Simulated assay, not measured.
Amino acid sequence: MAESLDGKIAVITGAASGIGLATTEALLAEGATVVMVDWNEASLNELAGRLGEKAIPQVTNLLDAQSCAAMIPQILEKVDHIDILYCNAGTYIGGDITETTSEAIDKMLNLNVNAVIKNVHDVVPHMTARKTGDIIVTCSVAGHYPTYWEPVYASSKWAVTCFVQTMRRQMIPHGVRVGQVSPGPVVSALLADWPEENLRKAKESGSLIDPSEVADAVVYMLTRKRTVTIRDMLVLPTNFDRV
């Protein structure tokens, strides 16, 4: 039987678009308060105004070390506790290793891996002191299969899988659940970096899913009774046949 999220306080990174926005809307519909974290202040303010008083904007640049470090303390000045941290922000690099740059690699690893680890590091003392909490991270099917057409991105998601599953075990004695959701290709801004031919074929074959499908999976994970942890949920388009 599903447990209620009414009254829970969630933090979602990358909340101004895509999976983050869809999950924000889904959790608000479940009665939660959502702190929406993103770097885009104008977009955050517009969305918070539309979504209502339970949507709280938090402007953070996860690629800036000081801004990233200040995120959890600043959020705890706005709300009195955090029940849920959903580390969703990320970026994408596709194609052969030679088709990218060192700068792009640094940016992607800093956002996809380092920021996740730092955000979790910063929230864990708060959650362990309360002896409860949920941490979820957006991974990818690419974190489970050697997707040779996107080796840099896949490597970041394999790192995320390792971090989440080691943290899951570390947090068991503290009452904090840790898991990941691993979507296949999602209709989002990240697909702008896909090779045009791959994107065209995926759209034509129905091999993409909507962000709301991932949000539904996150809600399912969060509403299990506390004695149950969904350690990972793969959400794939039915017609996705590349793995």
Rank of each mutant, 00 (worst) to 15 (best):
S156C: 10
T227Y: 09
R169M: 15
V235R: 03
D122I: 14
P146F: 10
Y145L: 00
G184F: 11
R130A: 14
L111F: 02
D134N: 15
E3M: 06
A142Q: 01
F163C: 06
L85Q: 07
G143C: 08
V152H: 03
L21N: 08
D80G: 11
A192P: 07
I136D: 04
K54Y: 09
L5W: 13
D232I: 11
W149I: 15
A10W: 14
Q74A: 13
Y153C: 07
S4G: 08
D6T: 06
K201F: 10
L190F: 05
K157C: 00
G94C: 02
L5P: 02
G14I: 14
K225G: 13
M221V: 10
T23P: 01
S188Q: 08
G143S: 05
A29P: 00
A65Q: 09
G52V: 14
A15Q: 08
A65T: 12
L191R: 15
Y145E: 10
T147M: 07
G94Y: 00
S4W: 03
K157Q: 01
G49P: 14
Y92E: 11
V219S: 00
I72N: 04
I135G: 09
N198T: 12
A202P: 14
L234W: 02
P57H: 03
A215T: 07
H144W: 06
L236E: 04
M171C: 09
T132W: 05
G206K: 05
I93P: 04
R200E: 12
D134G: 08
H126V: 15
I93H: 08
T100V: 04
N239E: 11
P185N: 01
E196Q: 13
L109D: 03
E30M: 02
N114A: 13
W158I: 02
G52Q: 13
G95K: 03
Q180L: 04
Y145C: 00
S43Q: 12
H121Q: 13
T91K: 01
K78R: 06
S155C: 08
L236Q: 07
L208A: 05
Q58T: 07
E30R: 01
V214T: 03
Y92K: 08
R224Y: 04
V116G: 01
M71T: 13
S156G: 15
E41N: 10
Y220H: 08
L5T: 14
H126A: 10
E197S: 15
D216K: 14
A32L: 07
L109G: 03
V186K: 06
W149E: 15
V11N: 09
V120L: 05
P211F: 03
Y153P: 05
C68Q: 04
Y145A: 03
E103G: 04
N198I: 13
K201G: 11
